[in-house]
Design a protein around this nucleic acid. Structure first.
Length: 449
RNA sequence: GCUCCCAUCGUCUAAUGGCUAGGACGCCUCCCUUUCACGGAGGAAAUCGGAGUUCGAUCCUCCGUGGGAGCACCA
């Protein structure tokens, strides 16, 4: 059978890195097996879903480089389909209307919690035989037997049906809830493999039972380890940037992010870590997915991003940061690239070329050299530049001392403690601007602080 | 509290029922170098604990401990 997988984000928030990683693994799996990937928007929660979030999800997925074969399919546009199956379950007495109030349920829940048993619905409305006019919710009669399945990553997992209780599958005939809509859709879309986060494990028995009751087939399940934050807890907005758009805005490259995300919870056989999506897809297998959660290491992402950045041509970088290809911009890019970690660094690290930053005169002094020596060195360099002999600066440095020559020059031109090399900056700035900055430096050295 | 899942350097991970447990990030040292970065060469750093199976266990089993997730008229 042809592989069909889906990514099923809920538009109740911006695209989360965890959701993106799950989407990526589905994408890799589909690609590896020549299967189809379906984008399904799980917007059954009308109160929390917004078009803005949906737009962000689609936009970021595309930006990351994840394409899909079918969709986006919105659950909110398929309410009739769910209603049909809901009615069937009701008719077959596999589901029933329930009018228990939230207060009643909360009280019972508390009671059960206090007596040390797993809180679950007690089935109070099971035998009431209520109809749609009751205005209640629809509950599914959970079977009391053990429900097990073989997770493609974790192996056999079992849950006791009686511990789950009768779950609410819809608030009304036109208001299906997550677990029910998922089951109907996975069947309707002929999903073969459900690849989702570990937090979906506990939902699996519910969905399995629902599938059985509806006469649907069971897809294969694979539960991915979670992406953890630095504190090894599920990544949350409180402790880290969780929105993919935030990383994009911070200047990360989609190819770097993709490579990085693929390596959280999955690893190829060998030592190779830098791989294109195509290379990864080729060797991707669920068997090599880790069981334990993996921490999101910003350090490693930064390293990887810098690595990918250096591999880009200057012209490509200009395009990505939306800079016109002027001579000046080209120079900035070439100069900043070896040191850049993110795309944003071109603007921030390159700023000194456009405007000399304020700096302290003392910065001009190499080690414990005297201000007079620095001044003399800079004055001589000015002379060389004015004579068109800038090319002989290295020779002068040999006589004058490398540090004593290059350090003051570099600081005079950049105003910074750390920067590209002085001759490169000199070239990038051009003669006029370089001379202007050198004179500023000399003035600083002349002014006692 | 209940249910489920997990456990190799700080982090992401590789490997094998048996040589000095490998790589990457980060960290440290050295080289290159005016600085920083890049690059190059080294280094420190791990099989959670206890039983059992076995000639032998990091790997298999059990217990413990630790960590995580889930327990909605959210998804």
């Amino acid at each position: 059978m042809d592989v069909r997988v889906r990514m099923a984000p809920s538009p109740t928030g911006f695209l989360h890195v965890g959701t993106a990683r799950t989407a990526l693994f589905n994408w890799l799996f589909a690609k590896k097996h020549n299967g189809k990937l379906i984008l399904r928007i799980e917007d059954t929660d009308i109160a929390r879903s917004t078009p803005e979030f949906e737009k962000d999800i689609i936009e970021q997925l595309k930006w990351l480089g994840i394409g899909w074969d079918e969709g986006p399919i919105r659950q909110s546009e398929r309410l009739d389909l769910y209603e049909t199956h809901l009615k069937r379950l009701l008719n077959e007495k596999k589901a029933y209307w329930c009018t228990c109030t939230k207060d009643e349920l909360e009280a019972k829940r508390k009671e059960m919690l206090e007596s040390g048993i797993a809180p679950r619905y007690d089935g109070a409305c099971r035998e009431k035989h209520l109809g749609p006019e009751s205005g209640g919710v629809i509950r599914f009669m959970m079977p009391e037997h053990v429900i097990g399945f073989t997770d493609l990553i974790r192996g056999h997992i079992e849950f006791k049906g009686e511990a789950i209780g009768d779950i609410v599958i819809a608030k009304g005939l036109k208001e299906p809830l997550y677990n029910f809509a998922v089951v109907v859709d996975d069947e309707d879309m002929a999903i073969t493999h459900v690849i989702r986060g570990e937090d979906g494990i506990a939902n699996t028995p519910k969905q399995l039972a629902l599938q059985a009751a509806l006469g649907f087939r069971h897809p294969h399940y694979a539960h991915l380890p979670l992406i953890l934050d630095a504190n090894r807890a599920k990544m949350s907005k409180r402790n880290a940037a969780t929105g993919l758009a935030e990383y994009r805005a911070a200047g990360y490259l989609p190819e770097a992010l993709m490579n990085f995300l693929a390596l959280i919870g999955w690893h190829p056989e060998g030592d190779r870590e830098i791989m294109t999506p195509e290379e990864i897809a080729k060797i991707f297998t669920l068997e090599r997915i880790q069981k334990g959660g993996g921490a999101f290491s910003l350090d490693k992402l930064n390293w990887m991003n810098a690595h990918y950045l250096r591999a880009l041509s200057d012209a490509e970088i200009a395009k990505r940061i939306d800079w016109e290809e002027s001579e000046r911009n080209k120079k900035i890019i070439a100069l900043v690239k070896p040191r850049a970690e993110t795309l944003n660094d071109f603007a921030t690290h390159g700023a000194f070329l456009l405007e000399l930053p304020a700096y302290d005169a003392k910065l001009l002094l190499w080690k414990d050299m005297a201000p007079g020596a620095a001044k003399a060195s800079l004055e001589y360099i000015i002379e060389l530049i004015e004579q068109g002999d800038a090319a002989t600066i290295p020779k002068f440095a040999e006589r004058n001392g490398r540090g004593e020559t290059f350090w003051p020059l570099r600081v005079a031109l950049s105003g910074m403690k750390e920067s590209p090399g002085p001759l490169e900056i000199l070239h990038a700035l051009g003669t006029d601007e370089s001379l202007r900055r050198l004179h500023i430096a000399i003035k600083k050295l002349e002014t006692p602080s």
